[in-house]
Design a binder for these strands. Sequence first.
DNA 1: ATTTGACTTCGAGTGCGCTCTAAGGGCCAC
DNA 2: GTGGCCCTTAGAGCGCACTCGAAGTCAAAT
Lengths: 116, 116
Amino acid sequence: MTIQEAAARSGLSAHTLRYYERIGLIHSVGRNSSGHRDYAEADLVWLDFLTKLRTTGMPIADMCRYAELRRMGRNTSGERKEMLELHRERVRARIAELTQDLKVLDQKIDSYGGME
Amino acid sequence: MTIQEAAARSGLSAHTLRYYERIGLIHSVGRNSSGHRDYAEADLVWLDFLTKLRTTGMPIADMCRYAELRRMGRNTSGERKEMLELHRERVRARIAELTQDLKVLDQKIDSYGGME
DNA sequence: ATTTGACTTCGAGTGCGCTCTAAGGGCCAC
DNA sequence: GTGGCCCTTAGAGCGCACTCGAAGTCAAAT
């Protein structure tokens, strides 16, 4: 799969895909005979997961650490799980915060009274 | 109230308070006899609301627009309400997205199996 | 054969939201 | 009156996560 196809399917730009590879988030994407990137299905699955981490607010540096552990193999799964558990707590806290703020927003909107 | 007190009470830094004033987010903070800022209770209430908008992800530019409308008086309340309603939808969407992503995270963590 | 266009690397540039610095002023304690 | 500290303004600098540009390669289309 070309970088453009991978971009379309992952929702990231080709620029971002190259950037992610450069910083070590994506490891060893295949190259075809002319040196162009050739993405596999497994790369797409990994990209989807990375995207979930990003949209939930994990910093790139942490994602790099996670990617590094993943490359190091099976015996790092404990640490990886810990990272995800910690991140999950942050996401839960963020949802809680947003939910609280939403209430304030509702009140503020109500205070503007009924006007169409 | 001095800028340091206002910073402590609002949770923003003195630097950020000056910055917010410079870009028009906070209008006409009082000055004492030596030219130092002298915050009023009303400023704190406004800062708290601004902070809610920020933590819920409203861009600074939009906050400036809201602040501008507020300065323009009562007849802009319709537009202000619209802005908040639009923002509320974005916050709701964000909560929904995070909630979905949280499920994926839960599954991923489960897939690591029981390891303490 | 040459033009077109997408690809490559890698360093530089961008936008956002602060955050800090420089240069100077005012007030209080000693 | 002088040292220390906090304040002022205006502008520069920073960290993050991209995003773009330059220079060059390669393959298919005309």
